[in-house]
Design a protein around this nucleic acid. Structure first.
Lengths: 206, 206
DNA sequence: TCGCGTCTCCACCGTTCGGTGGACCGCCGG
DNA sequence: CCGGCGGTCCACCGAACGGTGGAGACGCGA
């Protein structure tokens, strides 16, 4: 019998998931949690085998909770279940130790299969996620901005001139220009406006 | 008895919603749909009183479906139910004729109350939505770009200089500059980079 | 230990951009 | 019928930006 814990901040989604596993005779939902911290606590207290975890949650989010669980309850296999197939969250989640990454589009049967696979220690990825993951591995580094570059781009998107961005980061204007040049190179663009656009398209900016 | 139709592309969410209304004796879920077009068809066929509609769906999205329903089934009251409290979707949805705008954070009881209110012809808005709506009404028209301005902004986001954008639209460079100035005024920004950022935030750009 | 990546900074130059204050036209609605 | 809005265009100026080609310092991993 697989002991399953559901972690999602939406009561409706929790209800739907609980329902989904009601028919599965080899899976029992041992508990629910509404945020990451609660999820970690319950996973330990209830000795969950598999944790179905939402990514976007108030407070401790899914990635952080997954990382904590890897440390404190290594027996619990985490399955990420999210609405977004946006590229940005996949890698952090997997780095944090998630066993799978599923989309909420998934059919109930797919979910049950994924839970069983995770319980066996196998990995399950949604097709679109697999594709994206391959794309990442293929170009290691390229197309990824450094932390500093992201900061600069965010400031520029918020209306900072080079001078203002420099002041905000306590560095020289020349450094801002260098960072921007590197961003242009990585994105294949020629000016700050399209760099900002590309930043939004790659979901690096909010 | 209130006849309720659920329109959402996620089976899990549909299941959770169906569950939510199982207890309500004055509400009966008469059907479900997985996209906007299907939702419109079912709303008409099933004579739904209230339609609980997700915004983000493949194909016909919630806003489009709402607009069609206003035309073809004016008796059906549409309640938008979405994960995002992002500013961008509220106005289009309400303009399209939605009776309410709720977030999926809502508790089951709140949902039931909202459905009953909509059936009575009242409007229900999530608190954060109300706040945003007031902010919008305060500046009527301001913040909306004209078609031409959107075209210019899109070109700029794609890396065009003023000269290139002018060539693309077969107008003079001076006109591009004028359009950009108007965009800056409307957005409250000072340069093209942050105008592009604002364009993405308002979901005017893709 | 030796690279490689990251972050920092410099100078110079041409080009582009942003700000301002206009102007004219066509169209629609009061 | 006239005002407002959207679209087009003009000139001028200073400031900011983009391009180039460097360079030194640090830390991490091979």
């Amino acid at each position: 019998m697989i002991r399953l814990l559901i972690v999602d901040d939406h009561p409706i989604v929790r209800g739907g998931l609980r329902d989904t596993f009601a028919d599965a005779e080899d899976i029992v939902v041992v508990g629910e949690a509404g945020d990451g911290a609660e999820g970690v606590a319950r996973a330990k207290a209830l000795a969950a085998d598999v944790v179905l975890m939402d990514l976007r949650m108030p407070g401790t989010d899914g990635v952080a909770a997954t990382a904590i669980l890897r440390e404190e309850a290594p027996n619990a296999r985490v399955l990420i279940l999210t609405t977004f197939d946006g590229e940005s969250d996949v890698l952090p989640a997997i780095e944090a130790g998630a066993f799978g990454y599923l989309l909420k589009d998934a059919l109930p049967e797919e979910l049950a299969r994924a839970v069983r696979a995770a319980a066996r220690g196998e990995s399950v990825l949604a097709p679109s996620v697999t594709q994206h993951l391959m794309g990442q591995v293929r170009r290691p580094g390229a197309g990824t901005l450094t932390d500093r570059e992201r900061q600069v781009l965010q400031l520029v998107a918020n209306g900072s001139s080079n001078r203002e961005a420099a002041a905000a980061l306590f560095i020289g204007e020349a450094s801002i220009k260098t960072h921007l040049q590197h961003i242009y190179d990585k994105f294949g663009v020629r000016d700050r406006a399209s760099a900002v656009a590309e930043g939004y398209r790659r979901r690096l900016l909010t």
